[in-house]
Simulated assay, not measured.
Amino acid sequence: MDLETPPPDLYGRPRADRFFERLTAFGDWYSPALGRPGLRRSPRRAEARGVPPLFLVVTAHRVVAEDVVELRLADPSGGMLPEWQPGARVRLTLPSGRERHYSLCGDPADRHGYRIAVRRVPDGGGGSAEVHDALHVGVRLRVRRPRNGFAFCGEEKVLFLAGGIGVTPLLPMARAAQHAGVDWRLVHTGRSAASLPFTDELRSLDPNRVEIRTDEEHGLPDAAELLARAPRGAAVYVCGPAPMLAAVQRALDASPAVSLHYERFGAAPVLNGRPFTLRLGPGGPELAVPADRSALDVAREARPELPYSCKQGFCGTCVLKVASGTPEHRDRRLTEEQRAAGLMLPCVSRAAEGETLELEV
């Protein structure tokens, strides 16, 4: 069901707004009610020292495409939010305790609200379904301040390639490129026109620079064909499913483009993996981890309540302590001190072939 956004002037007042006071009170009552008996909660991790989290309220929840909802998050008192740049993400702690990262897809100039868009993934870990079904107007959320691992560098020539919901970080980049007078193009691919969000918003930037390409009308996209649209010497920014990213990487050298920036949704394929054994706690079950699967995926089959988010080794949500065995660290988050203390990110880190890792769970 589409819900109307409150009038814009509510966000800009320097004092507390009565509407938001009522909205916050409703959220305080409603959010705990979502913790129904039997719903397992994952542990909530504190923010980095000296960087307090934000506590925001959902002020709009509307459908923007088939199985895609857009949320607007704002300060309950109408205050200004921290600045962010195109490509930034926020981490939401959902009412169940799950933590999920979502790209900001609004306008960085709008300091009174963060916008995200989430596609429902039926066979996912439950986070997208919770966003769709539980994050109604008035729900309050703990939100980590924006962080950017996919920054837009503002090159003179740019090709943006978006696969489905992968358009979310690229939309603010395209807006920034348009304002800066950059020579840019954007291709948005997806299953059908109905499944693609923000089509009208993209075209409003410059209809001559935006191409909407659907499988229904054009067939499955070919990476070399997509890259052929790049101006010579251009930088390519791509966000979408793992197969799309892999295909673009393979085809880049033969294209007019000279550099590639990308963000993937979901875990990357395991490279150079070797089979090992995972033990969940002392005397716990021993689980075989194949060469092509992650320790986290195998562990969650036995313990589905184990928390996770990015599955790429940078958010730290799935961190566990190694009780015995020697891990093979492949993450981009833990410090040497943390690794020496026995911490491990099982979404990407592994062990040597034949090794047995015992994790504290």
Rank of each mutant, 00 (worst) to 15 (best):
A33R: 13
A257K: 07
A247I: 08
R203T: 13
D133A: 15
R44S: 10
R98M: 15
G27Y: 10
D215M: 06
V68T: 05
G149W: 00
R120G: 01
P169C: 06
V236P: 11
S324P: 05
E263K: 05
P82E: 10
E66T: 14
P76Q: 04
T356G: 02
V289W: 04
A267S: 15
R18T: 06
A193I: 09
R303E: 09
L343Q: 15
A235C: 09
F26M: 11
E201D: 13
R147K: 12
T93G: 01
H329V: 01
R142N: 02
V118T: 05
A234C: 03
E47R: 13
T326G: 02
L161I: 15
E155S: 12
G97K: 03
Y114Q: 06
D215V: 13
G127C: 13
V64D: 06
P275Q: 01
D292W: 03
E336A: 15
L81E: 06
A288F: 12
R115E: 02
G313K: 02
T356R: 15
P6M: 05
N208M: 00
T5N: 02
M344I: 15
W84E: 10
A33K: 11
D28H: 14
A193S: 07
G138P: 14
S349D: 09
E225C: 10
A151E: 11
P76D: 02
R89E: 12
R62H: 13
P307D: 04
G354N: 04
Q249W: 01
G78W: 09
G284S: 10
H61Y: 13
K321L: 01
L34V: 03
R145P: 00
Y11D: 13
F265T: 11
Y237G: 03
S128K: 06
L159P: 05
